[in-house]
Simulated scan of single mutants.
Amino acid sequence: MEYSIGIDIGGTKIAAGIVSKNGNVLTKKVFSTPQETRDSIIQLLENIIFTLTETAAIEGKKLIGIGIGTAGQIDFERGKVLSGTANIKDWNDVPLREILSKKTDLPVYIENDVNVLALAEQQFGAGQHVKDLICLALGTGVGGGIISGGNMIRGAWGGGAELGHITVDMNGPVCNCGFKGCLETYASGTGIARMMKEELKAYGAIEGNSEFLYYQKHPEEVTSQLVFELMRAGNELAMKVVETSINALSYAIVSFIHTFNPTQIVLGGGVLQDGEWFIQRVREQVSTMGIRSLVNPVEIKMTQLGNEAGLIGAAIQPWVYGGKTEEIHQ
């Protein structure tokens, strides 16, 4: 059987492993993402590749390639990170394939992190055998991946599918991309925490509620996880914030359906700790909106591969693309 090395680069951790053609993760290691310099990250990647290559040789496993998923705008053809993320140190204009190819004889594929998430779910998860799907990852930000007619949609050079930066409110808050009212400002963990802080500030003094008074004085401790905890406890401010997030996400999903005519929407990411409840509310909202012939047939599902989706999606690139940069094999 053939195997590949998969590497999923995130702002806080890097997951790497040896993965089989059918998506089984045989060996997995997780490392903290170096915060010092770009070179420290690259050095870690080189060490990972060396170690896993040695492991495969010892165990008699034939490696056919290396697949990497990373946040940012990726020039897929050149294997280069053009514009990265603030969570990864100096992750801009990085010729990653060129650098790593000097350390290995294996072909190296570099892809956007949510694109590989979509790829994994389409091959082995919620979207198996679906040729038209959209994947949204709700985490610190909101990322998107689009497969249409069996093809990954990347745009002119790979920067397409930045679905978190569609505007859902032209008078909304300024996003970190510089635009106003982006989906990311409402449906990401950062956006949910921001809205809760604003609600607490606007509410004024809350007599007799020591917990609220504490978070009014310490807004830096407000997280999206806290908002969901307060919502489950029946807190009206938290409920308002979560509903606002669901509304924004639902409007965006309907816009994506109108634009790309998918048969499935797959949602994942750390924000979905309440999982099925959250997605059911999105389904309910979406079902009342948009062009019926487009919206009604679309399934909205949660990712099935969990935390390993990024690693699996990164790893299967040598088989999926196999030198053909566009066609996704069924």
Rank of each mutant, 00 (worst) to 15 (best):
Q273E: 15
G164R: 05
C175L: 05
Q43T: 14
G189I: 11
N92A: 03
Q43P: 02
G150K: 04
V266L: 14
G155D: 04
Q73W: 08
S20Y: 03
M289R: 14
N296E: 15
M289N: 09
D39S: 13
F50W: 11
E308C: 08
G164L: 00
R38F: 10
K131I: 04
N115F: 01
M239D: 12
T33K: 09
T167F: 01
L117C: 10
N87Q: 11
G23R: 03
V142D: 01
A315M: 07
A57Q: 11
C135G: 05
T51F: 11
E220A: 10
L138Q: 06
Y186K: 06
Q123E: 10
L226T: 07
L305V: 01
T325H: 15
V30H: 02
I68F: 13
V295G: 10
E98A: 12
S148N: 14
L117P: 04
Q280C: 01
Y203P: 02
W319Q: 06
N247R: 10
A71M: 14
Q73H: 12
Q216D: 10
K201R: 14
N87I: 02
A15I: 04
G127R: 06
T104C: 00
N247A: 11
K61N: 11
V130T: 06
E199N: 08
I246W: 05
I328S: 02
K62W: 01
G67E: 04
I99K: 11
I18S: 01
T288V: 15
I257Y: 05
V108C: 07
R283H: 08
N171Q: 10
I246M: 12
D274F: 05
P262S: 05
Q123W: 11
P107V: 00
A205M: 12
A126D: 01
K201T: 13
G149V: 01
A120R: 11
I7H: 03
K80Q: 14
D113H: 02
T27L: 10
N209W: 09
I146M: 00
S188M: 01
Q317I: 01
I99Y: 07
S224T: 09
I18C: 05
A238F: 12
E36C: 03
Q43G: 15
G145R: 12
V130A: 10
P297H: 01
I192C: 04
L117F: 15
N22W: 03
R283E: 10
S293Y: 10
I48R: 07
V241C: 10
E207L: 13
V168W: 11
T223M: 01
P219D: 05
K240N: 11
G10D: 00
N209Y: 11
V168F: 09
E2C: 02
